[in-house]
Design a protein around this nucleic acid. Sequence first.
DNA 1: TACAATTTTGGAGTCACTGCAAGTTGGATA
DNA 2: TATCCAACTTGCAGTGACTCCAAAATTGTA
Lengths: 241, 241
Amino acid sequence: MEEGLRERKKRETRQRIADIAMGLFMVKGFDNVTVAEVARTADVSVNTVFNYFSTKEDLFADRQDVAVDHPVQVVRGRAPGESVAAVFRRDFLDALETRHWRYGFNVGADVFAKLVNDSPTLVARMREIHELRERSLARALADEAEADDLTPLLVASQVLNTTRLLADFALRRTLAGEPWESIAPDLRAQAERAFDLLESGIGGYGTRPPLTPAGSAPPLAVAGGEQPGAEPEDRERGGED
Amino acid sequence: MEEGLRERKKRETRQRIADIAMGLFMVKGFDNVTVAEVARTADVSVNTVFNYFSTKEDLFADRQDVAVDHPVQVVRGRAPGESVAAVFRRDFLDALETRHWRYGFNVGADVFAKLVNDSPTLVARMREIHELRERSLARALADEAEADDLTPLLVASQVLNTTRLLADFALRRTLAGEPWESIAPDLRAQAERAFDLLESGIGGYGTRPPLTPAGSAPPLAVAGGEQPGAEPEDRERGGED
DNA sequence: TACAATTTTGGAGTCACTGCAAGTTGGATA
DNA sequence: TATCCAACTTGCAGTGACTCCAAAATTGTA
């Protein structure tokens, strides 16, 4: 089955719109570009843009599936005898050495980052992608472990949060103008510590000195429930998350 | 300095709008209520609504600061000799026994949850709140530890993800129609395991049998980079998160 | 009572996004 | 080659959140 002219044109149009949109976003910032402007520049109607991309964000977040899939690929790539935490350590450090984009270490990643950071919509989208990643990794882990409890989810969540915070750490310093050469060694050190923590748990973290003479610990129980300045009547609220 | 008529009226108006909005949301669902409708029902102009609440979500998420603050209160309530993980375990189990709303265990929480779940906007907002919680807890931990590394952030993130996933677990089963009496024991068991995992780390999790005769582990390195169906030219992408 | 500071309101406008009906075009068929 | 169908594109007319602005209406004060 050949690929007809029709199919090709479609692909081309879609690609052209996405490229032009990204170009405009890079120059003017996501929020300062209207879909109408993208359409005009790409020489199509607004409706056509929405025909290919269901929201403006999709114009930016195209191919997010790659990012979502990556963690699953990583666990699948475990060597014999290698734990989940260990592969991710390996994968992360490898990306660090090679300045790979999968954790945002490539040259120019900061431009993207700034672009995202400046747009609440895109920041929200990133959080969503993170959750998708979490879920897909959790499913992968659950499949191979055949467990029906929360463990896979917890593991996935902890691992991905570790890498996320590490990537974020590097990013913040990059955005602050620090050169990669200066960040890298520190990042490596932090990564080792972070993965150590991930592996060994936060068990005793923050334990207060057991025997302080003055001041006994008040029972917390409803901590945050009866704030001093809160309403008298307890307005019931619900769904934490 | 007295509280003038003006101040009082302002507070009342604000409260009335918020209450009426919440009422409408509960009945019709967040996305099926327009701001105009809220305004009409509250007998004010649309502009007045936006005068008090800068977005439609704020109409719902009012008082989110309490939720954001809770974790900080919990760590502040540590008993001598008690670790961070331990207080959260205690706080969580206590909430479980008392069916407290701080983790969404109160009667009627499911209604809120459904409301939130059905609106992408609100789901996004919840994710944002989670991040705020993470950050404020991290700051609190960093302050008392006087550390300048990522540890407080990592700890905060892991703790809050644990509670989040546990709360979610309970919620999903509630939404599936299961009665609380049936959920609670299971939830308690899951919670104990989750906090154990949190404390002792995911160290050996998912370790593959070290010596499998057939099939050696391929080096992953650029896992996810060269997907089978991906574009030939490597379109550089940036900001992971 | 008159003036000043605040609120409230109406109105006009922008932007993302939807639904619909009328073109336009590519490809298969007679 | 003429014809026809289905898919793609477009214009048009909304809806709904949110902004800006200038004209009332209301409240605190001199």
